[in-house]
């Protein structure tokens, strides 16, 4: 589902944020991405969401090299990647329902279908009774769930989460992680950046560890340069 081959990312005026990273995440596989802050976790997630482009190497999603796709193609790649943000990135002037419906509206899903799928998604995260609420009236954990409902409403094959439990207490964090595990069980590839090592070890999934831009655990051996497979 996700494959990195010798991927490097260098920001102008600084060193390598990622350096020759190679790993593979199969369909229906769940993995944690760990490392100190500044180790390159966010950079790696941004590459998958095509928020940035690799300096070197290949990023494959569904066997498509997204490192060099045209600007016009980017939205369609992003529709296959549900992203959950640490700061939720909800629209505070719209109801929970409208927030969750947004990806479906973008994709041009019919009105009736939207209602059905948004409710299914809200039911999944346990917020069906909050559909008419404004996000501001919800707790941090509930807002995070709204963010998750929005990320999965379009049934993307890939879920990315950037420190999804960063602001939550341990019990809520665990609940959120269990939720991700449920999506993995129905065939979604899930990649979660987190530094909550205790929780990660309890969950018992594949762990990718980054250190100063290098993948020191969980990755693949680098193929010879210029030869992706």
């Amino acid at each position: 589902m996700i494959e990195f081959h010798n991927v490097s990312k260098r920001y102008p005026g600084s060193g390598d944020a990622l350096s020759r990273v190679s790993f593979k995440l199969a369909g229906g596989e769940m993995a944690f991405l760990t490392g100190h802050s500044g180790a390159g976790k966010s950079t790696l997630l941004k590459l998958i969401a095509v928020l940035i482009r690799p300096t070197n190497g290949q990023v494959l999603i569904n066997n498509e090299n997204i490192g060099h796709i045209s600007r016009r193609r980017i939205p369609y790649v992003r529709r296959n990647v549900g992203i959950i943000f640490q700061d939720h990135k909800l629209l505070f002037d719209r109801t929970v329902f409208d927030n969750v419906a947004l990806p479906l509206v973008i994709a041009g899903v019919s009105h009736r279908e939207i209602g059905r799928r948004v409710r299914a998604s809200l039911d999944k995260v346990g917020l069906l009774n909050k559909e008419k609420s404004l996000p501001i009236t919800l707790s941090g954990g509930q807002q995070q769930r709204v963010g998750i409902a929005r990320a999965v409403v379009n049934k993307p094959p890939i879920l990315l989460a950037d420190e999804p439990t960063g602001n939550l207490d341990p019990e809520l964090s665990r609940e959120i992680m269990e939720l991700f595990a449920q999506f993995q069980q129905v065939g979604v590839s899930v990649l979660i950046a987190s530094h909550d090592l205790d929780l990660i070890s309890q969950m018992g999934h594949k762990v990718l560890t980054l250190d100063e831009g290098r993948m020191v655990a969980g990755g693949m051996h680098n193929a010879p340069q210029g030869e992706p497979r």
Partner: peptide, 8 residues
């Protein structure tokens, strides 16, 4: 946000 979730 719309750009992030795939709005053209």
């Amino acid at each position: 946000i719309i750009k992030l979730i795939g709005g053209t």
